[in-house]
Amino acid sequence: MSGAWVLLIFGIVIVSTMMLLLHLTKLGHIVHCHIPDRPRRRLFVATVAFLATFVGVRLLVLCITHSIGPFGWVMMGGRHIHHLVWGILILLAVGYAWLADLGSGNSPTDIFVNRLLASMYGVGAALTLDEFALWLNLRDVYWAKEGRSSIDAVIIFAALLGIGAWGSPLLHHFFFKRKHTKKIQDADCE
């Protein structure tokens, strides 16, 4: 199976799973009731998609390098196209969509688009940062010692996403000893 198809299918599975979980399960209701909308909910969705994609891509690359399964590199014209290229393209598309204000309203369609874009952002960021060492060294050092910088970049970025999603309320609750007040967004969250 062509690497491009595997990567495309993988990305679609991650985003589809996120969307199904957020819209059709009790988890979506819990997220809706306990994580305030924009920007925290968008950061939460991006964080989960980012971490799932990172783990999945690392496993996929491991399978390719050890000839496990039908997977292969993405090749075009005899040239290996690294997955950071697809990540950059996804990030450009999401950035353009956000600049065009897609998903910024409160209709069900806008909420769906907002979550879809957040999921895609997480996927694109993971594909890009997983090969951070390639940017830094300008050569493929994925499994070499220098490749550790990719792991460091992923950890730092995941921490930033997590801090954006959960940091402020936790800091205020634990460090500033302010009373934790829960805002009920909808009557059905009680």
Rank of each mutant, 00 (worst) to 15 (best):
H82R: 08
A93Q: 06
A97P: 05
L91W: 00
D110A: 09
H82P: 08
I111D: 08
V85I: 15
I81M: 09
I88A: 13
S107W: 09
D110Q: 06
W86Y: 14
I90A: 08
A97Y: 01
F112H: 02
V94D: 00
V94S: 00
G105N: 04
D110G: 06
V94P: 02
G95I: 02
H82F: 10
N106V: 15
T109D: 13
G87V: 11
W86L: 14
S107A: 08
N114D: 12
W98D: 10
L84H: 11
V85E: 07
L84Y: 07
L91T: 04
W98E: 10
I88Y: 13
L92G: 04
L89G: 11
A93H: 09
L99S: 03
I81F: 02
A100T: 00
Y96K: 06
G87L: 06
W86H: 12
L102Y: 04
V85T: 13
L92I: 10
P108W: 13
T109C: 15
V113Q: 05
L92F: 03
H82Q: 13
A97I: 03
I90P: 04
N114R: 12
L92K: 09
A97S: 07
I88F: 13
D101M: 15
A93Y: 09
L91E: 02
L89R: 10
N114E: 11
W98Q: 12
V85N: 10
F112C: 11
F112Y: 05
H82Y: 12
G105K: 02
A93K: 09
A97T: 03
G105P: 02
L102V: 08
V85W: 14
G95L: 02
I81L: 02
G95S: 01
S104L: 15
I81A: 00
P108R: 10
T109K: 15
I90W: 00
T109W: 15
F112N: 02
I88M: 14
G87P: 10
W86K: 12
G87K: 05
L99V: 03
L84N: 06
T109L: 15
L89E: 11
